[in-house]
Simulated assay, not measured.
Amino acid sequence: MSAEFETDLKDLAAKLAQVESVMDLEALRAQVADLEQQAADPSLWDNPESAQKVTSQLSYRQAELRKVTELRQRVDDLGVLHELAKAESDAGSLAEADTELAELTRDIDALEVRTLLSGEYDARNAVVTIRSEAGGVDAADWAEMLLRMYLRWAERHGYPTDVYDISYAEEAGIRSATFRVVAPYVYGTLSVEQGTHRLVRISPFDNQGRRQTSFAHVEVMPEVEETDHIDIPEKDIRVDVYRSSGPGGQSVNTTDSAVRLTHVPTGVVVSCQNEKSQLQNKVAAMKVLQAKLLQRKKEEERAELDALRDGGSSWGNQMRSYVLHPYQMVKDVRTEFEVGNPSAVLEGEIDGFLDAGIRWRKQRGDNAA
């Protein structure tokens, strides 16, 4: 067992060294130093938007550097702990070393997955839209369950979210919802969630207790930045304003502050009703519209590549099944990663699916998503 432990620890140290090489620690330290210098400039907050970007990047880069430095220290310390425990035949310390090895393996694997995010937009915030599809009221309820799942996932990681718009269904659930997740590399992480999610369960809306299959579609877009050059002429946009409302038509605002934007050339429609003023809702809706048009542009470029490859992309097709009856299982149909505890998954424990999806995409060389 001792030889096996030492081999596993050696392999883990080698994997961490590979991760450190990909992350380029010297360049990371230089970035931190440069951002610290910018953050110390008294004139930085003359431009609050730029200042927030600098401080956010600094916080993230510092955390990345701290994370990999602490992992290296833990690997070194674990070697020492195991040697001492072995020399003294200390069963308690040997068990502690085994536990730490398992935790280190998990933490280094997670950091390794992060290094696989090298797509053009992977480092950005994510704008996510969920739509109910086939399945009637069950599908609307399913779409709301997915919305909660992703918001819980973001909450678990401490990622801020902004819900831009929710369109409630008449009986239960939602027709659609759009929200933003704010964190470095969250678009690259969540982009593997794009596609159709299928739920099989005993319908709570069927008085005969029959099994129902329902579907919801998840669309994941990178947040648009100034460098994207997504210019939308005013003449191409139709603006409609209306009164915000919640479930059951309850008024949540006494003014026509909700905004719906229609991009006339493409027919793309977005809306926002979560902000307090019409102007704020229009700004938020414009961000979502730009993100959708950027996504459309990416999909057109990807379609051209797929045509050259003589094969279509599987993105957008059914990608995961959540079965609550007659057995309990959540399975990704692309990666074959599965979990036998749907309740935990629906509470936001989806990191295993995200990691498997990112590795699967990397193996396919499909970083266009």
Rank of each mutant, 00 (worst) to 15 (best):
L261I: 00
L261W: 04
L261V: 02
L261P: 00
T262G: 05
H263Y: 09
H263K: 12
V264C: 07
V264Y: 06
P265C: 08
P265H: 10
T266P: 01
T266S: 15
T266D: 13
G267M: 00
G267E: 01
G267I: 00
V268I: 11
V268A: 10
V268L: 11
V269Q: 06
S271I: 01
S271R: 11
C272V: 03
C272M: 08
Q273P: 08
N274S: 15
E275I: 04
E275F: 14
K276D: 12
K276L: 12
K276W: 03
K276N: 12
Q278H: 05
Q278V: 02
L279A: 13
Q280A: 15
N281V: 09
N281I: 11
N281G: 12
K282S: 09
K282F: 06
K282D: 08
V283K: 14
V283M: 11
V283E: 15
A284Q: 11
A284E: 11
A284K: 13
A284C: 10
A285M: 08
A285R: 10
M286D: 09
M286N: 13
M286I: 02
M286G: 14
M286Q: 13
K287A: 11
K287S: 11
K287Y: 00
K287F: 00
L289N: 02
L289T: 03
L289C: 02
L289H: 02
L289P: 01
Q290W: 01
Q290P: 01
Q290Y: 02
Q290I: 01
Q290R: 15
A291I: 04
A291E: 04
K292R: 15
K292V: 00
L293V: 07
L293R: 07
L293T: 05
L293F: 01
L293E: 06
L293S: 04
L293D: 04
L294N: 01
Q295M: 10
R296I: 00
R296A: 13
R296D: 09
K297G: 07
K298Y: 03
E299G: 00
E299L: 13
E299Q: 14
E300F: 05
E300S: 13
E300P: 00
E301G: 01
